[in-house]
């Protein structure tokens, strides 16, 4: 085997892919959140719709977004493959299961694949509801500042008035929170960044990120459902 494929298929190489794609998706979450928080502005959705227009028309951003799709798929497939392979390393299961760990969350660490699958399902519904409908021109158009944009805001408001969608979004964000609780600091550990001086900071940052980002995301559907 060529050294590079060997590297990527080694147990550490596979984890490296999980780690790097995971960290990239964390960055994506920040950008996505920053954009989406514009939904909370009281401007009838103008800022948000303009933002959505930019995101879909700027060639550079478009390129990055295709990268993001690719990384999401890679992260998901690799994660599922790894989880299945890891399960196969122990055919005979324990009668008594305990969950002692020294990490942040034993539940999260052990259920990354389950949490990841939940997030993947969420992504499917989320993209189908907004991205696909926008791409296939199922949304209305309107003109803001002389630019003809699709009214995604209206679509969002419509979706977030449906009870089960709001509930599902909140559940998915709780799943994301746990996924990040383990994933964020685990990515650094996989990269080999475990340092007496910096690791406590990374762990604190990871906890903050895992709680703050999903909470803010979850606020949006709740705001639409209860306040608007």
């Amino acid at each position: 085997m060529n050294w590079f494929t060997r590297f990527l298929t080694s147990s550490i190489g596979k984890k490296l892919i999980m780690s790097l794609t995971g960290l990239f998706l964390c960055l994506f979450l920040i950008v996505h959140l920053a954009g989406n928080l514009q939904l909370l502005l009281d401007d009838g959705g103008n800022a948000f719709n303009l933002y959505a227009y930019t995101m879909t028309h700027n060639p550079l951003i478009k390129a990055v977004s295709y990268g993001t799709y690719f990384f999401i798929i890679l992260h998901a497939i690799q994660g599922i493959v790894l989880a299945l392979q890891n399960r196969k390393a122990r055919n005979s299961k324990y009668a008594v299961k305990v969950t002692r760990t020294t990490g942040t969350s034993s539940f999260a660490a052990r259920q990354m694949a389950l949490l990841g699958s939940l997030i993947l399902i969420f992504l499917g519904i989320h993209m189908g509801d907004f991205w696909w409908k926008m791409k296939s021109n199922q949304t209305n158009t309107l003109t803001i500042e002389g630019i003809e944009v699709q009214d995604l805001y209206e679509k969002v408001a419509a979706s977030f008035s449906v009870e089960w969608i709001v509930a599902f979004y909140v559940v998915a964000m709780i799943g994301l929170c746990f996924h990040l609780l383990h994933g964020f600091q685990s990515a650094f550990q996989t990269l080999g960044l475990n340092h007496k001086k910096y690791t406590p900071f990374i762990q604190l940052l990871g906890k903050g990120f895992a709680i703050l980002v999903p909470t803010l995301f979850a606020l949006i559907p709740l705001y639409f459902y209860f306040v608007k």
Binding site: I12, K15, K88, A89, T101, G103, R110, T190
Partner: peptide, 17 residues
């Protein structure tokens, strides 16, 4: 690391158990 992989152990997912 190569030998470890060849022995059929699973990959580390930083569970810390």
């Amino acid at each position: 690391v190569d030998q470890m992989d060849a022995e059929g152990f699973g990959a580390c997912s930083n569970v810390t158990a």
